[in-house]
Design a protein around this nucleic acid. Sequence first.
RNA 1: CGGGGCGUAGCGCAGCCCGGUUAGCGCGCCUGCUUUGGGAGCAGGAAGCCGGAAGUUCAAAUCUUCUCGCCCCGACCA
Length: 476
Amino acid sequence: MSKGVTPQSQDYAKWYTDVVQKAELADYSPVKGCMVIRPYGYAIWENIQSVLDRMFKDTGHVNAYFPMLIPESFLKKEADHVEGFAPELAVVTHGGGKKLEEPLVIRPTSETIIWSMYKKWINSYRDLPILINQWANVVRWEMRTRMFLRTTEFLWQEGHTAHATGDEAVEEALKMIDVYRTFAENYMAVPVIVGKKTENEKFAGAVDTYTIEAMMGDKRALQSGTSHYLGQNFAKAFDVMFQNEKNETEYVYASSWGVSTRLVGALIMAHGDDKGLILPPKLAPYQVVIVPIYRDEATKSAVTDYVDKITRSLGSLNVRFHVDTRETLSPGYKFNDWEMKGVPLRVEAGPRDVANDKLVVVRRDTGEKTLQSRESFLESVGGLLDTIQDSMYRNRLAFRDDNTQDISSYDELKAATADGGFARAYWDGSGDDERTIQEETKATIRCIPFGQDGSEGTCFYTGRKTSRQVIIAKAY
RNA sequence: CGGGGCGUAGCGCAGCCCGGUUAGCGCGCCUGCUUUGGGAGCAGGAAGCCGGAAGUUCAAAUCUUCUCGCCCCGACCA
């Protein structure tokens, strides 16, 4: 492996692909647009999964699995849904050596297959709500792909809920976007703006789409999770009705919500630097890596014994650690390697440290190097990991705030977003206005943030009075 | 699908313009010895139908034509 990665300042896109490869997160597959997620990348995804899965279950959801192959006709039942997904479908036309009566699409998302089943399962309000999540792969034939951010096949979770009232379904969609916000902020250490998508940007088949938008290291926005209030659109398309308490027949209300392996891309780009990844302790496959340093067999056995004492304690402290015992690599190489892989804390243990009962402890996020006694390290490591987690979040929050500007004219918008950056502005334009702005500036309305104070201002584009503010940025 | 670039050892490249002996270099890999506190050193070694096909020629990695694939930039999206 050659040294280092392309500096961010030189070519951010190249930096990103370099990091993905050199940190051994993923590799290119023989099929265009697909990727192989390597063990280290998958370990990050597994940590994301296990935290989110717990959060979903704590909010009353259960997991299930629906098939990957969907009759083509299902996709055509919801008008907006077909229109939205038709161009990016992979279709199976043959099976068992014979042409199929009806082609099967590989799921781009599972609303249709799930709602075809909900029709069988829902009769009465007593059957509601249904709160199902599934962890799955989906395929969307994208024109341009990028590792983790947009690949032909990707892994995600998709929640699909069914409710007796629209209010309840909206509440569910809002609850889940808040789960995503909590996850992004508390686990990924990535601040996000929570809000509603405009008509142009919402999901194909949704009444409303909610989103969390994060700022990457190049100041561009990344949609990191979405939830949708689907109204009765899919219930009508699949004829899913229930009898309410007054014995009236009514269509069921729906929500769906998802996050994907794109979150791994978000972690890379939100925190990474020219040395590689910087992982938040709560999601890092290894929170601490120990590099033993020795000269000969005598120092090796002394250092090994010393390291054993440390790892026994770390194990009981519930710290995820790894001891790098690779024989053929120099300590210097290992330092760089684990920095590339973003491990939050590196511990160096050599003969000098054994002699003094000390350790060299290095923070990945700040580069700060300290000499500590073994005892004080073991006492403080848990707190130090929390400090890193917190400091990473505050660092990214400050970065985002520094790169977010309030703008009040079209020229200001262009200036604020040209080189990345979020623009916050009053907005009363139309969908066509939005498209024009996108064509002219490449920036899009990322969302209409929640929690607006209702104060009035002037739309920067139409000049009309409005109380609605939006966030505009170039996005991935 | 439009514009640009690239296919030579596992990876990154040189050689190609101007055809000519065993096709080179760096990294990685293998063996041995010495090393190990910020990407170790020396010695030896393995590894290539030069993306594919056809053509020109005494002779093709090199020239011609066709083809396949990949990457980057634009039009779509979690």
